[in-house]
Structures are given as structure tokens and as C-alpha cells.
Amino acid sequence: MKTIAVIDYGMGNLRSVAKALEHVAAPGTRIDVTSDPERVYRADRVVFPGQGAARDCMRELQSRGLDEVVLECSRQKPFLGICMGMQVLMEFSEENAGTDCLGIYSGKVLYFGDDLTDSVSGLRLKIPHMGWNQIHQAQPHPLWKDIDQDSRFYFVHSYYVQPDDTGLIAGETHYGRVFTSVIARDNVFAIQAHPEKSAAAGLQLLSNFSRWNGETQT
């Protein structure tokens, strides 16, 4: 039996992620929502979800000894970061007056800004960026299998990732500006949107992840 660990570090609701995975995972897959580092190490695949603020997220990870696990697993096995679980992979977030993150990739997490306007209409855009927006697939990837180019996913966030290495960018989204909504490298895929709340496209992505061997060839 294969296991997907959903890392539970006390930040918000993991039930949706677990339920969506149970709904679509390859037969014989066990979904293990856990805060036990050993169980995360033993899993075949790892999902790193998250919501809330960057500083709380980092503090909870560190206090539970899960930061090391995330670093290790991000080098070894199919790894899916979601929302805050994408942002903290970077070096630094502007949130909470500046928060040092895990630094797996060089780059920052930036605030959208209070003066964000729509480039076409000139209207002021609301923060958080909340609702269904398109993800433009910037490179082929096994996790995009059977998902249409520019499909809509559900987002809710006020900060976005800006990687130094543009080769990491696997998806882009437009909200007042073009921002990186998906990064991918080797066995890691991380998405700003919530696939567990993104209806058919999101379920397809989770299904693809549950069958992914961690290689990037499509």
C-alpha cells in the first residue's frame, strides 16, 4: 500500500485536502494526516498544505520539528506544496513585517499591494485575491496531465511568490500583474491555488499527484 502524508502543523483545516485526496487517489493509497515526523519520512508522497500567516506557519513547523522533515522530503519524494505550503519554500516573506522561511528556493514572497489596479479597466483590485482565476501552464509537467491550458483554480491569498530562477515557474496567473502561481523542480510541485477546492481541475491535479513518480518528463 502506498501512503500520502498530509503534514499537519496545526494551521487550519486539513480535512478538505485529505477528503479530496481520498476521493481521487490511486486505488490502495492511504491518506495519513499527521504531525509525526517519522510518519512523514516513511510516506511515499508528501502534501504540504497551509493557510494563515507566514510567521505562524514557520513557528509551528519549527516547534513541532517538522521544518527538517519538509526540507528532507522536498529533496527525496513526490512533494506537493499548497498555498502557504508553497510560499514558505522560499527564502523570505514580506508578511508579518518580514519572516524568514525555509529557503529551499531562492526568492521572495511579496505583498500584492494596496494600490493594485486592473491593467485593463483601471479599477482597484480587492485584496485578498479571492476566487477562481486562470493558471497558464508555463512548462509541460506530469501534474498538468488532462488539465486544460488556462484552467481556473480557486485562490485565496494576499502574498505571492517571486522566484529568482525563472526556470522554476510552471504556472502563471494574472491579477493586476502576472505572478508565479506554480513552481516545479525535480520532485517538487507547489501551487498557490487550492486544488482541493478547485472542482474538476483541482481533483485532476490531485489525482495526477497521487500517481506521480516525482520525475519531470511528461
Binding site: G131, W132, N133, Y175
Partner: peptide, 8 residues
Amino acid sequence: MGLAKRII
């Protein structure tokens, strides 16, 4: 291309 308005 951009954020969609929602029906709830």
C-alpha cells in the same frame, strides 16, 4: 484573462 466574479 483574470479573476472571475462568483455566483454563490
